[in-house]
Amino acid sequence: MRKLEQANIRLEKTKEAVFESLVRGYVKKILRLVYLIVKDRNLAEDITQEVFLKAYKNLSSFREESSMQTWVYKIAVNESKKYLRSWSFRHLFFRAEVDVEVVGDTESAVLQSDSRIRFARLVMSLPPTHRQIIVLHYYEELSIEEMADILDISAGAIHTRLHRARQKLREQLEKEGLEWI
């Protein structure tokens, strides 16, 4: 009995250590990913916290069938979706504009006048489903297969969604008269 207890304590310690390294290694990434989806810093922090608490709760069920990153991203995307679905979020807070200005003396002079800023703003103004797919592919630089795993859909569906998101961006560019930026 005593041995069993000791083994449990060791196991618990290992779990704690794994979780701590997960937190240290991925919080920044997840916070950024979530922020790009929900566009609100406080909300992004709350969701990030939820993501890791979920991960902690289910750590023992993580079977390494996917990478730790894919697993945590999957939780993050699902948690973000919950908020995007949330009635109050959609009805009240969805139009949140992101402040897309560059800080820093040297770069700001160049970048603030740069059309890249306007383009980034356009990406951030896309509807959430389109923005999510763009963020996963172009910001997180995930492969089609990884995205399929995270979003739990086929690779073909990812291609379709990416195509639609690009199409939407093109339309927006034309609407805004920015097609040649």
Partner: peptide
């Protein structure tokens, strides 16, 4: 689109480097 990552890091996410407090909060809550 390929430039988006760099622009996002420099502009949109510029104040998101310090996550120490959030990390501690998560560990404490867990």
């Amino acid at each position: 689109l390929r430039e988006f990552k760099q622009t996002a890091d420099q502009a949109i996410l510029r104040e998101m480097d310090d996550t120490a407090e959030l990390e501690e909060r998560i560990l404490g809550k867990a």
